[in-house]
Design a protein around this nucleic acid. Sequence first.
DNA 1: CTCTAGATGCAAATCATTTGCAATAATACT
DNA 2: AGTATTATTGCAAATGATTTGCATCTAGAG
Lengths: 143, 143
Amino acid sequence: MKKSLPTALTLLRTHGLKVTNIRIAIVTLLQKATAPRTAEEIARQMRRIADTATCYRTLRTLTDKGIVTKLSLFEDKASFALTDTPSHAHYVVCTHCQTIEPITLCLKNADIQALHKAKKFTAVRSHALSFFGTCKKCARAIP
Amino acid sequence: MKKSLPTALTLLRTHGLKVTNIRIAIVTLLQKATAPRTAEEIARQMRRIADTATCYRTLRTLTDKGIVTKLSLFEDKASFALTDTPSHAHYVVCTHCQTIEPITLCLKNADIQALHKAKKFTAVRSHALSFFGTCKKCARAIP
DNA sequence: CTCTAGATGCAAATCATTTGCAATAATACT
DNA sequence: AGTATTATTGCAAATGATTTGCATCTAGAG
């Protein structure tokens, strides 16, 4: 039997955050999402519930607490995904339609360890691995 | 004996670009750089030679031609590096002082091939791999 | 040397994101 | 439950990176 994820509510409480509508709504949205969402997409979907500034502030709070992770999949805008979604750590991005597809491929731990030792860094906290290309759908549509 | 890199001049001519002062200057700057430079840094260093808008336009042109590569190493601003610097394809970024250090670690070709086949993508054109952490210098300076 | 498409400077526009401030609501405490 | 305390929100204005309109200029073809 699969262990169910903590509800948005418990997630917020566990991290000592006040429980508010937007926080619940954003966490829930990201829990349901199969790929990261841009801040703008999230703000747009929350229009009825909260102001854009509030969405950005909420995303920042959730990121600071480690509940969600901020990604730079597009040059100019940030994307967000639930942190505890290990299989979605990396992505393939279609540079035409901007579709994001999670991939499971990751670096070997050995490689990462080697990196930690070799370089002038004491703590390598995270890494980002993204692929950019054209999805089949777009490939067909483009001349 | 090491094969010398093409001069900025030839690089521009080879790609059918008009030769102008800023183009020469920016390509030369990136040839000398040991790590990527942000657009803002580049614009600042070019202040005497050209307007900020012109720098951005030049960086775009050079990127379109494939002479330089645009990177998203920081959340909010773009960085640029010469494309033909294979050993500098990936980086470790200190999230405190924003120092960028090139690394040689890369993905196994086998992994990339597997990715190409497994996913809904026809052409995976590029990938980005960056590590984020704290460099020793900052680690010492921070409480 | 002249002509023309492309390149540049300057100022204003745009886009994503942040911030100041007064009003409001979520928890802690009685 | 009722209230005090402090974080959270909405709104408008600010910010910072990057882009664009337009008139002017210049590299390179002929």
